[in-house]
């Protein structure tokens, strides 16, 4: 009876398609997880502790800026000058730190041939002090 066979065939085929899709999704998730794990493992193994320290500081600055921005949007921007000081401090310090990281990274040695890590750190310190001076001005 073809009329009774046809639905069961279509149900089987749709179930097969769903099963295939689920498998593909699982594979994709697994692949992504593996990629992240591989990346994290490679980062842990190949990155020096100094650069990790700089990266930790960059992550801290990013999270701090995000949290202050969320507070400003969700709760209040009062006092606005304090928000500007805090957020500007985060952004400015992030830029200075990223610049330091780029200059002290051994893989960029060919790019920054004339800039020693000590010189880069001196620039970072000077820029940070000037930035903090302006930030304290804004604090009010």
């Amino acid at each position: 009876m073809p009329a009774s066979k046809t639905p069961s065939t279509s149900q089987k085929s749709s179930a097969a398609v769903a099963s295939t899709t689920t498998k593909q999704t699982q594979q994709q998730v697994t692949g992504t997880t593996n990629a992240i794990q591989t990346l994290f493992k490679a980062y842990n193994e190949t990155t020096s502790s100094r650069l990790k320290l700089v990266d930790a500081f960059l992550v801290f600055l990013m999270l701090s800026g995000i949290s202050q921005f969320l507070y400003c949007i969700l709760v209040t921007n009062f006092p606005f000058n304090a928000f500007l000081a805090g957020f500007g401090s985060n952004v400015g310090q992030f830029v200075l730190t990223a610049s330091l990281r780029a200059q002290v990274n051994p893989e960029n040695r060919t790019v920054f041939k004339d800039v020693s890590p000590e010189r880069a750190f001196a620039d970072f310190v000077l820029g940070s002090i000037v930035l903090h001076f302006f930030v304290y001005n804004f604090l009010g």
Partner: peptide, 14 residues
């Protein structure tokens, strides 16, 4: 607490 939370993350990293 929200604004100070990143300090906990930094201390954890350190």
């Amino acid at each position: 607490i929200l604004v100070l939370a990143p300090w906990v993350v930094l201390v954890g990293f350190l």
